[in-house]
């Protein structure tokens, strides 16, 4: 394999994991920005998303677009309910809220373990075949993931910028009290934001299900990566989450190609710590009031 092919392949792989990290990190940062809750259960919603996709697509043979819609609906509603039932009473204190999400994570992961068993299941590709651009070859399935994730992120961005609810959410993130004075029903925004956040994680899970496999433990790594991305991009910053996700994906992919996977992991952590020390608010974060 010549150098060009290697680099292009690394770039495509970096984009695939980068968009996945971005999808995860957007939801994570959204919940932190609006609710001040570090959601340790975020990865479990990724896992649930991949299971819902597995059941609807691989077992029921529904079209994949339908699968995605069902995933968003199921996980979004479940997330809103969880916020309303479990997180709402514990949110007042940052630490208590964090531990509550930890408890939720334990319950969700082990419920999946009990119901589905520990062994990973392979999921068939949504699109198959290869595409050739001159000397380099891509698989359609990877490009599909990148395009679909980009579309979801774009739709989310439009929603946050243009829709009434999206603007209300941004207002709450900026200043909860001022938002209340403006007549925004903060208590209604919270379950909605939480539902949307975990639905994004579920979309990431559904899209990545054919790339990795499906098991109760698939959510752990994306969760840790989302954590790192959010630090890199700045807590609460959505553009930061996208930028940080892509950056981390690229560093990981090229680092792994050039130096091996372990060194690549060390490299990204060293980079993030360096950034934190120089600029504690991350690349695109704002200073907290």
């Amino acid at each position: 394999m010549d150098l060009l092919t290697l680099l292009v392949q690394s770039g495509v792989n970096g984009l695939v994991i980068g968009t996945m990290y971005a999808l995860m990190a957007i939801g994570f940062t959204l919940v932190f920005g609006i609710m001040r809750v570090v959601n340790f259960a975020h990865g479990e919603f990724y896992m649930i998303g991949s299971f819902v996709a597995f059941i609807t697509y691989a077992q029921w043979h529904l079209p994949f677009a339908m699968t995605l819609l069902i995933t968003i609906a199921v996980v979004g509603i479940a997330g809103a309910l969880i916020e309303w039932l479990l997180i709402r009473p514990l949110r007042a204190d940052e630490l208590t809220g964090m531990i509550a999400t930890l408890g939720i994570s334990v319950v969700l992961q082990n419920s999946a373990l009990m119901y589905f068993g520990a062994s990973p299941r392979p999921m068939p590709d949504v699109v198959s075949g290869l595409v050739r651009f001159g000397p380099v070859v891509f698989s359609w399935s990877r490009i599909f993931v990148i395009v679909a994730a980009a579309l979801v992120i774009g739709a989310f961005w439009l929603f946050m910028q243009k829709s009434r609810t999206g603007r209300a959410m941004r207002a709450v993130a900026q200043d909860r009290e001022a938002a209340l004075i403006q007549g925004i029903d903060v208590e209604r925004i919270f379950p909605f934001a939480f539902g949307m956040s975990v639905a994004l994680a579920a979309v990431a899970g559904a899209l990545m299900a054919p790339v990795f496999s499906v098991s109760p433990f698939v959510g752990i790594t994306p969760m840790l990566k989302a954590f790192i991305v959010v630090i890199l991009g700045g807590l609460g910053s959505i553009p930061g989450a996208v930028l940080g996700g892509l950056l981390l994906g690229m560093i990981e992919s090229f680092g792994a190609t050039l130096f091996g996977a372990l060194v690549a992991d060390m490299l990204q952590l060293a980079l993030v710590i360096a950034i934190l020390l120089v600029r504690p608010t991350g690349l695109m974060g704002r200073k907290e009031a």
């Binding site: 630090i231 807590l235 060390m266 934190l276």
Partner: peptide, 28 residues
């Protein structure tokens, strides 16, 4: 001496990263 100038959630995050670094270093 280096990281304690960070406060609140940023300190939490940097200690998290330190933990990850440690695991990777031991593996590596």
């Amino acid at each position: 001496a280096v990281i304690l100038r960070l406060r609140g959630v940023y300190f939490v995050l940097v200690t998290f990263l330190f933990g990850q670094m440690f695991t990777l270093m031991v593996l590596n």
